[in-house]
Design a binder for these strands. Structure first.
Lengths: 228, 228
DNA sequence: CTGGAGTGAGAACAGTGTTCTCGAATAAGT
DNA sequence: ACTTATTCGAGAACACTGTTCTCACTCCAG
């Protein structure tokens, strides 16, 4: 669409460069990101950053959104690379992609799945990319309707069933509440294992991390009723 | 024993008071804890804090240790209040106690189960209280040996089995590798749900939080083979 | 060609963790 | 009981931080 106005182009390039440097600092300093240090690396004075991001929080928010997006595309691409009817293959591919990304970018993972800073309200821009992974898992199960294994009974209480019903109607898929429940269990577990692994809670306990992860996610596939 | 030397007593009282104030600040400011703000609340100058804690990190470490201890005793007491042979009752009591504590102290929970700051190595003092919850869960299962339900097959790879074997021998209990594996799955899941709930990832998804939690942990009890 | 917008530099302000020095108070040793 | 040593808090100082303002300079549009 017409001229991106050279100035606008170098501007977005500069924004990108700032985020890249900030990301690099994130990896070593964690969430205590120093604007002045970022500026130094860019041979720029700190106040100049404010032409691109109105505050430190805004920069962090941009990094958070980027992280969600990167994770989502990694998972989506992994899913797309597996034949549609290989449900377990897709399931494992998505889970492994999430893990691979998380291990490759621990600081950014911590930014989005660690403890949020109190008072920092996640902007609306983050909710859509944040829900991408669970939607992928749901899609896999939906694609398997008719071939899924029956679930061992585990009764849902009425209020919980209502929550599930609401979620199903929002996306107007036609899953049973029990089935969606299991997907949510699996989704919860996925990030439970990853938090433990990325945050170092498995150190000196489990050495066979990859095997452990695959095993956990296979159990979750069973629990969800994916056919073998 | 003997004389706690009045000076040592007021010293430990002061340390306690500092931690209390710091805890209060933690709840509102998150991990960016300001020493000077804490000092102000105590009508003390910031440098005076260094008589009690050699650095800000040291104060945070003390808070972390306290948090682990508080969580561990909450869980232990909950377990002790249920008849020994009511395995599922004990299981649910422990899980609920962890949840209750986490929801009552979200900032401290985030401190110990959120993303760790890079470069901050958890001191040795934290590993023992940190493993208390999983040990409680293991104990419940061990107390049920002979009454446990057989596990649906889900083969363990050799390296993973070796990890589990090593853990079993460290504590010289006589669990099967498969059984310990399920306890670890349940343990992982416990903190997976709690991270989601405490860090707000269930907002606008699940309203029936308590029911959801109980349901998840009951599923984990099933998966571990606790008799009904 | 000229006004206006976009950009970066620099100074300034309030806040931070940390170190050091210096009196005052308290405990310990003789 | 008197002196010596230790502990404590205050205060100043240093090197940082995020943020705001003002001031030049450059670029593009009318």
């Amino acid at each position: 669409m017409s001229a991106p106005s050279l100035r606008a182009r170098v501007r977005s390039e500069m924004s990108q460069e700032i985020k890249d440097v900030a990301r690099r600092h994130l990896a070593t300093d964690g969430a205590n990101l120093s604007l002045r240090a970022v500026a130094r690396d860019l041979d720029i004075v700190a106040s100049a950053l404010y032409r691109y991001f109105p505050s430190r929080d805004a920069l962090l928010t941009a990094l958070i959104i980027d992280a969600y997006d990167a994770l989502a595309t990694a998972a989506t691409e992994a899913d797309a690379a597996v034949p549609r009817d290989d449900l377990r293959g897709r399931w494992l591919a998505v889970c492994r992609a999430v893990r691979t990304w998380a291990l490759a970018h621990p600081a950014e993972y911590g930014l989005i799945y660690g403890a949020p800073v109190p008072g920092y309200a996640a902007p609306q821009d983050t909710v859509e990319p944040a829900s991408k992974v669970i939607l992928l898992l749901v899609d896999i199960v939906v694609d398997g309707l008719g071939r899924l294994q029956p679930l061992k009974a585990s009764p849902l209480t009425t209020p919980l069933r209502a929550d599930l019903r609401r979620l199903i109607e929002q996306r107007h898929s036609d899953l049973l509440e029990e089935r969606l429940d299991r997907v949510l269990v699996a989704w919860t577990h996925l990030f439970g294992v990853l938090n433990f692994e990325v945050f170092g809670r498995l150190d000196e306990m489990i050495e066979a991390r990859a095997e452990n992860f695959d095993h956990h996610m296979a159990l979750m596939a069973d629990l969800t009723g994916l056919p073998r």
